[in-house]
Amino acid sequence: MSDNLQTLGDALPRLGDAVLVTLQLTLGGAALAFVLALLLGFGSRSHRGAVRVPSRVVVEFFRGTSLIVQMFWLFYVLPVFGFRLESLACGVLALGLNYGAYGAEVVRGSINSVPAGQWEASTALNLGHVHRLRRVIFPQAWALMIPMFTNLLIQLLKGSALATYILLHDLNYFTEQLRRSTQDTFFSFTFGLLVYFAIAYLLTLVMNALEVRAKNRLGAGPTLREVLRIAPVPATAKAGAA
């Protein structure tokens, strides 16, 4: 065991690099996925067929194809057409496209879940289409989206492990290297699990904070400050007037 720790200690600088690569894949992929989710999610709701149909096709395609095959395709096939992307760019792109397609469904569903009365009140106040979405509908849909986005983000983090196979030295790769140098399968893979879990847990905490804030803005639940204090929520924050 002490040999293992010794080996791990020697590898620590490389662990930092590996975690950094995994974080770059995860956060880069998530940022791209988020933008795509919004574009494709809103596109899927468009009345114009020229917008809606391509959005649906893209969503269905990237949702329905394997992430690892997408990565391989970007990494090995795209150069055939004269576009050579860095490994990291391929990873981010594949993760963004794949999870963006899932996210688009989250966006679409959440927008549709905002009560009809909110749309109608906006019409009655003569708000323009874009204004209505931006100021009335989206802030309410956002609170519904976050828990589902949290799930997708964690899945995206785990999906990023596939980037090892397009030659990235990410956390998964590091774990494998650790196994080779220690010859201890249990130790190295357990260590890998724990690091992935730690990252996932941190991401969950951040997303939960976003969720608390979004709900509070809709007048539901405590403020983030109140939650972080872990003190009992004052009664006034919860109870509406009778």
Partner: peptide
């Protein structure tokens, strides 16, 4: 439509805005 206003059975106030914000949203932006 600018000349027509409506009050609904279910109020339909915007929960993401304060009372004042609900009232000034359309006068300012429309």
């Amino acid at each position: 439509r600018r000349r027509v206003g409506m009050v609904f059975q279910q109020f339909n106030l915007f929960p993401n805005m304060s009372v004042l914000e609900n009232i000034i949203e359309a006068p300012v932006h429309v």
